[in-house]
């Protein structure tokens, strides 16, 4: 019987490794293809020997930083979603639920439309806006010394509606200047450079490392509040801790590339199908798969309608929405819950 247990673990670890290999392949493909296509050997030469020619310029300076950002943002959003799904005890939880996206959007649009002279503070402003909205949601959800998931969800819906209204109002009042705003609101990784990578990477690595430490806690919450408490967990503290890590991950992502929906919702679902609900496997797999999915999405965004570049948020919504419905249908047919 020990054997079954071992083979199941081996299988799950294998799935994670395969996903990781696919990520590497997708990365090589992404930096080889675009307005100018390179062969694999040209890409490897550009990466490791950096000859002083156009391939280095394109691969090393344009495509690689952009791909790295796509991978880390995807990983951040997926891990953020998977943590919040544990916090809320609900598989439909998504980083947007905490108010982080709508808060960041409103802050960003205020800066872009009303204070363009501080445009260089856009990322910081978006992060602070998201964090403020999130604090508001959790503040409203706090009652009698505790936070209940349902209250977070309801407070999140209300705050999102309010802030979304503010964003729409500002867009309508400034419809002549809306172009750049639209791009940001739909998430875009165009023109990302090594500077953006340097801005994102330290926080992303920190957040992802912290998320690994949350695995036991996230699993405990799956058993419900009473059982978790009886096992010695401090449920409130655990919820706030997991939410904090999730918000950090989503916040830095939004600040770097704008709003990208669906990754935080769909990727954890796909991972659950592949490695099960145990966070020891689910969380690392979501992390890798999130990177893979967003990298593929961004590569499509760059190439599908070339030379026009689509915002990756649009791609994720257009492909992600139907795919999500497909997953739901499939679950119904198999007759078991998510």
């Amino acid at each position: 019987m020990q054997h079954d247990e071992k083979s199941r673990m081996t299988k799950r670890i294998l799935v994670i490794l395969i996903t990781f290999c696919l990520l590497i392949i997708a990365l090589l493909f992404a930096i080889a293809n675009g307005s100018a296509d390179f062969s694999l050997s040209e890409v490897l030469t550009a990466l490791f020997q950096k000859p002083d020619d156009v391939s280095t310029a394109v691969v090393w300076n344009l495509r690689l930083p952009r791909a790295i950002i796509a991978i880390f943002v995807g990983a951040n959003l997926a891990v953020s979603g998977v943590l919040l799904q544990s916090v809320m005890g609900n598989p439909l939880a998504d980083p947007g639920l905490t108010g982080i996206s709508s808060g960041a959007s409103l802050a960003a649009i205020i800066i872009m439309l009303l204070f363009p002279n501080v445009y260089h503070l856009l990322s910081l402003g978006a992060f602070l806006g998201g964090a403020a909205a999130c604090l508001l949601v959790y503040g409203l959800a706090w009652k009698n010394g505790g936070i209940r998931p349902l209250r977070i969800i309801l407070a999140g819906v209300a705050v999102n509606a309010m802030l979304g209204g503010g964003t729409s109002l500002l867009s309508i009042l400034n419809s002549d200047k809306i172009q750049g705003v639209l791009l940001w609101l739909n998430g875009s990784m165009s023109a990302k450079s090594w500077m953006d990578v340097r801005g994102l990477l330290p926080y992303s690595v920190l957040g992802l490392a912290l998320s690994i430490l949350c695995i036991r806690g996230a699993n405990l919450l799956l058993l419900g509040d009473n059982v978790a408490t009886n096992l010695g967990a401090r449920v409130n503290r655990l919820r706030i801790l997991l939410s904090g890590v999730a918000v950090l991950l989503a916040g830095i992502s939004v600040a770097t590339v704008g709003i990208i929906g669906f990754v935080g919702l769909i990727v954890p679902h796909m991972s659950r199908k592949m490695v099960g609900a145990d966070y020891r496997f689910l969380l690392p797999h979501s992390m890798v798969l999130g990177g893979l999915v967003l990298l593929i999405g961004d590569t499509l965004a760059r190439t599908v309608a070339a030379p026009v570049e689509l915002p990756v948020g649009v791609i994720m919504a257009v492909i992600g929405g139907p795919f999500f419905l497909y997953l739901l249908r499939k679950e119904d047919r198999n007759g078991h819950d998510a």
Binding site: E5, G217, L220, V227
Partner: peptide, 26 residues
Amino acid sequence: SQTNHAPSDFTVRDLLRFGRTPHKRF
């Protein structure tokens, strides 16, 4: 507890691992 539920793909052994929680650091 009176009512309990475990995630649908957790095995008996997975469930028992949780029993060790109080003896472990975070």
